[in-house]
């Protein structure tokens, strides 16, 4: 039996299908989850994909955070269930306070869409075990609300505890403090990042790189080996 990985669809989610495909390519079963349900359909892990859930009204991720499904996900995440938030999903995780800090409008105010080089800073999370700390990967980045901010004390804590999971390389694309592209919670089961690993899982599509596949193979191995 393989692992069941839930992929959440909110109104305005865009990347749920790509995420389901990435989950399947890694060898897991993708289980679509709907924001208005409370039931997680007995999945082993959840991915919150990118898009503009609830139109990003109020703040990106602010309204999704109060959806019935997120109530269940927040409880389960606190109990140790692996959760990955990509782009808008990362914004939902910070709004849910499952991850510290907040996401704001890019400092240059433009939407960006390009391949972005990152350094994987932590291979000790549920979603990055198939990488090696220090490894450089290149995956697509596409957003307008990608500027990660937190107060100095929180940033120092994240650095000291090894919870900066990904850092932008070569260029800081949005003014994120300390070049942070993604972070993890203390337990390593909840990870959020702005760039899109699910768009870099197949040779011959996009840049042809498969640098993002490791997110999905990491979680599969972790769940199957449990």
């Amino acid at each position: 039996m393989t692992a069941r990985i839930g992929v959440v669809t909110f109104p305005g989610t865009l990347d749920d299908r790509d995420t389901q495909r990435a989950v399947r390519l890694a060898g897991a079963e993708a289980v679509p989850l709907w924001h208005r349900d409370k039931d997680l359909k007995q999945v082993d892990a959840v991915v919150l994909p990118g898009g503009f859930s609830y139109g990003d009204y109020l703040r990106a991720g602010a309204i999704s955070r109060f959806s019935p499904l997120m109530g269940t996900i927040i409880d389960q995440a606190k109990a140790g269930m692996p959760v990955l938030g990509i782009c808008n999903g990362f914004q939902v995780l910070t709004e849910s306070h499952l991850l510290p800090g907040a996401m704001l409008r890019n400092n240059h105010l433009h939407f960006i869409c390009r391949d972005q080089k990152l350094r994987v800073e932590s291979d000790r999370t549920a979603w990055t075990a198939d990488y090696v700390a220090g490894q450089e990967i290149s995956i697509p980045l596409k957003n307008i609300d990608g500027r990660y901010v937190a107060d100095e004390r929180t940033l120092d804590m994240l650095e000291a505890e090894g919870r900066v999971a990904f850092r932008y390389l070569d260029v800081n694309p949005n003014g994120s403090l300390r070049d942070i592209a993604g972070i993890t919670n203390e337990a390593g089961n909840v990870v959020g990042l702005m760039p899109h690993p699910e768009h870099a899982v197949e040779p011959g599509i996009g840049t042809g790189r498969t640098d993002g596949l490791g997110f999905f193979t990491s979680i599969l191995k972790k769940l199957v080996n449990v």
């Binding site: 704001l104 409008r105 400092n107 240059h108 105010l109 500027r147 901010v149 107060d151 003014g175």
Partner: peptide
């Protein structure tokens, strides 16, 4: 006050 506001700056 300590948060950068690029929209206000624009």
């Amino acid at each position: 006050p300590e948060i950068l506001d690029p929209q206000g700056q624009a």
